[in-house]
């Protein structure tokens, strides 16, 4: 989920950058050196996974997976997503320098929120785990879409319609992300439970 360059106003860009810097600092502080290799290579895996397009009727959508990022990395989501976005800017020119902060917050803040909301339930019994993993994937994308909408609204009141459209357009993505997150977390729980932080 990206906001392109040249759309947002100065105050929104700078508050995004400040929030992203604070989040990244918090994430880096929690990350000791024996976790950096893990975080870096997982970040690479998320980058590759976000290039996967899953079919949706006649079109396709690409995976976002910030729910999974949150459950696996906690606060580490901030530096991991910042790095991934910088790579995207350099490789594909999606997003760029001025929107780097805002886009990091849009993706990483929901990941951290969902980590606090849902990770305590992932290790409970199967039914609770299924529901909370689905909710994690769904809400993470929902919150990201809301943040995109908010960034647009704070830029310009007249962006109200376009903001609502952004949130509405992401509804199918939320549903799919819910399923993908659910299956993915259940898979990890079965195959390598130590990967999910608690």
């Amino acid at each position: 989920m990206h906001i392109s360059e040249g759309i947002l106003s100065g105050p929104v860009l700078f508050s995004g950058a400040a929030l992203a810097a604070a989040g990244t600092a918090a994430g880096l502080k929690q990350l000791d050196y024996d976790r950096i290799a893990q975080t870096g290579i997982l970040s690479a895996a998320f980058f590759v996974a976000s290039l996967i397009h899953v079919p949706l009727g006649p079109t396709s959508v690409h995976l976002i997976l910030n729910g999974v990022v949150g459950l696996l990395l906690g606060w580490g989501a901030f530096p991991a997503i910042l790095v991934a976005l910088l790579l995207q800017a350099l490789f594909f020119q999606f997003g760029g320098l001025t929107t780097l902060g805002v886009n990091t917050v849009v993706m990483a803040l929901p990941a951290v929120i969902c980590y606090y909301l849902f990770s305590p339930f992932i290790n409970k019994n199967q039914t609770i785990a299924i529901i909370s993993a689905y909710a994690c994937g769904f809400f993470c994308v929902f919150l990201s879409a809301l943040l995109v909408g908010a960034a647009l609204m704070f830029t310009e009141k007249n962006f109200f319609e376009i903001s609502t459209m952004v949130v509405a357009a992401h509804l199918p993505v939320m549903i799919i992300e819910g399923f993908i997150t659910m299956f993915c977390i259940l898979f990890l729980k079965k195959v390598k439970p130590s990967m999910i932080v608690h």
């Binding site: 899953v54 999974v68 799919i176 993908i180 993915c184």
Partner: peptide, 15 residues
């Protein structure tokens, strides 16, 4: 979706 979720999961484990 289940298959892609498992692909992602496997990718994460390998990583």
């Amino acid at each position: 979706y289940k298959t892609f979720a498992y692909v992602v999961g496997m990718l994460l484990i390998k990583a």
